[in-house]
């Protein structure tokens, strides 16, 4: 018996953490070259693209010199090559490395990065999006909890099969590590093509982003009376994952018309936008990182927040 238990324990110890299974979903009318559904890496920092030495140094020493990017001789926690996870991420993602998508304002590699950008770096407060490493924890709107966001608060630094390596169990989540965000992309990252990968036109949002955001912004998503409200009554908060088509207070014919700068929507069952399966999602109105606009809002015409509302509502 002891031998058997000991034998069982070895593979358990060696087994990688089990990831949630990406759900199967209907895919009618697929086209345009978007990959079929199925597990895949988060894009970078995963699988063959997870290069330990990009971020870690075993002894912080190479030929007698520190290996930390900031040149500090003192080793950092977790063998990191910068003083904190966020500083480490920003070392490459601050626009100085053309191979890595820039997440700090000003962004120059594309005009409209899908995730937007952070205004200021770590520790710089802003009203334009998420605060990175604030001086003290900040209460998430829609939640009673406070957080000190690092890049790693949302992204799995070692990668996973979620879109953009988003965590399966983001902070505040009561989802038991099963938050699956499904976004398909036409062009995958190859380490040198951020301008082709990290742009809205490359993406087909399928599902899960609302649930991910809701992990911290508890009251903003869900169909209970304390959240968006029930479907049988007028909404209390703007709904998420609701189709534009067939809704009393949306104008699908307008949405289906010749709109410029169309905002992102989820298109769970086909690759066609606009079409009747299009669903509003958090990223229809907000950039995930920030936008240069208050509350990370997207101004579809570049000038007015109203223009974003009007894409669906046409009032």
């Amino acid at each position: 018996m002891s031998l058997l238990l000991a034998t069982l324990a070895v593979p358990l110890l060696l087994a990688p953490p089990q990831e949630p299974v990406r759900p199967a979903r209907p895919r009618a009318g697929l086209g345009g070259g978007f990959p079929a559904a199925g597990p895949r890496a988060g894009g970078w920092h995963h699988g063959d693209n997870l290069v330990c030495s990009d971020c870690h140094t075993t002894h912080n020493s190479l030929h007698g010199q520190p290996m930390r990017y900031d040149g500090v001789a003192e080793p950092a926690d977790n063998l990191l090559r910068m003083g904190s996870p966020t500083e480490l991420c920003l070392y490459c993602h601050d626009g100085t490395d053309p191979a890595a998508p820039d997440v700090l304002e000003p962004v120059s590699y594309v005009a409209d990065p899908a995730g937007g950008w952070f205004t200021g770096g770590a520790g710089v407060p802003n009203d334009h999006g998420h605060d990175l490493r604030p001086a003290s924890p900040l209460q998430a709107p829609g939640s009673s909890e406070s957080f000190s966001l690092e890049c790693s608060s949302c992204h799995d630094v070692h990668g996973n099969s979620n879109y953009r390596n988003l965590l399966f169990d983001p902070p505040g989540s009561a989802d038991n590590g099963n938050v699956v965000v499904v976004v398909d992309e036409l062009v995958s990252a190859n380490g040198s093509n951020p301008a082709q990968v990290y742009v809205p036109a490359n993406l087909k949002d399928r599902s899960g982003m609302g649930e991910f955001c809701n992990s911290c912004h508890d009251n903003f998503h869900g169909k209970t009376a304390g959240e968006e409200g029930g479907a049988s009554r007028p909404w209390l908060r703007h709904p998420n994952e609701e189709t534009i088509f067939g809704k009393d207070h949306a104008d699908y014919s307008h949405w289906a018309g010749p709109i410029t700068n169309r905002v992102r929507v989820e298109t769970p069952t086909d690759d066609i936008v606009p079409s009747s399966d299009d669903r509003v999602t958090c990223l229809s109105c907000h950039k995930a990182h920030g936008s240069g606009r208050v509350d990370s809002l997207i101004y579809a015409d570049g000038l007015r927040r109203l223009s974003t509302c009007q894409q669906c509502h046409n009032q």
Binding site: D127, P141, G142, H217, N219, F220, L236, R237, H238, C285, V294, D295, L297, R305
Partner: peptide
Amino acid sequence: MHASQQHGY
């Protein structure tokens, strides 16, 4: 949108 607002636009 979310029954929550702490600042202007």
